[in-house]
Amino acid sequence: MEPSSGTDDPAGSFHVIDGDRPLDWEAVYRENIASIYRLLYYKVGNQPDAEDLTSQVFLDALPRLRSGASRGEIHMYLRATARTVLATHWQRRLGVQVTTIDENIGSPEAPEPPADPLPRIRRILSRLPANYRRVLELRFLERQSVNETAAQMGISAGNARVVQHRALQRAFELGQEMVS
């Protein structure tokens, strides 16, 4: 299966497999597990997938790393591996790249993503029409079911799903506008 273009070059030209001393893989793991998990969680939005993909990244990358690489290089190599693992995940599950990890992520040109995504999400929510904001708050922040959300909003469950769909579409557009 061919992934879409631009998603298959995880390692770029990093040269982190050099060196002939043993890698202190436990130290590498301890140092990077939280950030790689967080990166992937923000890209898949659920714990089981985030755990699966994080596992794939470390199992794939650690045996290839050698101690000759710097901490920064190792971190970027893990991120690059995560980029490929994520692309493969979406390709297999949906056949479309829902989210991606920036090719140059972590580089000086592309700073690290914000550690706390909440402020951006709050900004997006604040710009939505009231019923759109309400449905997303109930569903995603308060994690209420569709039926509970519908009851709170005084609409049918089917209508709540439709409003949720439109709210997410608008939220995406607002997010894009905020980036640009």
Binding site: R38, Y42, G45, N46, E51, I121, F140, Q169
Partner: peptide, 16 residues
């Protein structure tokens, strides 16, 4: 994609 992003706002999101 928006749904995935919204998920990162839930409590404890992103913490292994």
């Amino acid at each position: 994609a928006a749904a995935v992003e919204m998920r990162s706002a839930s409590a404890g999101a992103g913490l292994p």
